[in-house]
Computed example of a mutant assay.
Amino acid sequence: MATWMKVVPLNEVPKLGARVVTHGGVDIAIFRTDGDDVFAVNNKCPHKGGPLSQGIVSGNKVTCPLHGMNICLNDGKVMEPDEGCVATYPTKVEDGVVFMEV
């Protein structure tokens, strides 16, 4: 059975931006697209640990601010030609509040 943790009000996550939360000692970036889709991924780029929350969001991907690696927010996979992935966490929005499955 899923356990959902209340994370942040949706209006506190900027469109095309992110907010960082910590769970179990891990920094997780909560992203919001321009269409109000919400994604949660580990905040460290798999390349050199860059803070993904400071990256540029475009569609359902984020570009690492350090070296330009593109990461799909749907599944955490790095887009070709690069390789790697980051952990993702299911999210949902209810009554204007973002929840994350833990």
Rank of each mutant, 00 (worst) to 15 (best):
I56W: 15
G59T: 08
M69N: 10
N43A: 09
L73N: 07
T3M: 15
P14E: 04
C85Q: 13
V62Q: 06
E80T: 03
G35T: 15
F39K: 00
L16N: 15
T88R: 03
I71T: 03
P51G: 00
P14R: 06
A87Q: 14
S58M: 10
T63G: 09
P90W: 04
I56F: 14
N11H: 12
D75N: 13
L52R: 00
L73Q: 05
P81S: 06
A18L: 05
V13K: 03
V86P: 00
N60T: 15
E83T: 11
P81Y: 00
H23V: 14
D36I: 07
N70S: 12
V38I: 03
E12F: 11
G59N: 10
E94M: 08
I56C: 10
S58H: 11
K48T: 14
P14T: 04
D37S: 11
V41G: 01
G25F: 10
D34G: 15
V20W: 11
P65Q: 04
D34Q: 14
V57G: 07
S58C: 13
T33M: 09
V21G: 01
G17K: 07
V8Q: 09
V86R: 02
N11S: 11
V102F: 10
N74C: 13
L73T: 01
D27C: 07
V41I: 09
D82Q: 12
V102S: 09
F31R: 01
I28F: 00
K61L: 10
N60V: 15
V93N: 01
D34R: 14
T3S: 15
M79D: 15
A18T: 01
G59C: 09
D36A: 05
G55M: 02
P9Q: 10
G17S: 04
V78Q: 05
V38W: 05
M69L: 14
P14N: 05
R32P: 04
D82M: 11
G17F: 08
I30Q: 02
G59H: 11
G35M: 15
N70H: 13
K44L: 12
D82K: 12
G68R: 00
L10K: 06
N42H: 08
F99A: 04
E83M: 10
V86L: 03
D27G: 06
G50R: 07
I71G: 01
C85W: 11
S58R: 14
D27L: 07
K92N: 02
L73P: 05
P9M: 08
V20T: 12
N43R: 02
Y89F: 08
K15W: 10
L16A: 15
S58P: 07
V38E: 01
P81N: 02
H23G: 06
K77P: 08
V7L: 09
M5G: 08
V20Q: 08
R32V: 01
P65S: 04
V13M: 07
N11K: 14
P65G: 04
T3Y: 13
V57C: 06
L73Y: 00
R32C: 07
A18Q: 04
Q54W: 14
T3C: 13
N11R: 14
V41P: 04
T91K: 01
V26M: 09
I28Y: 00
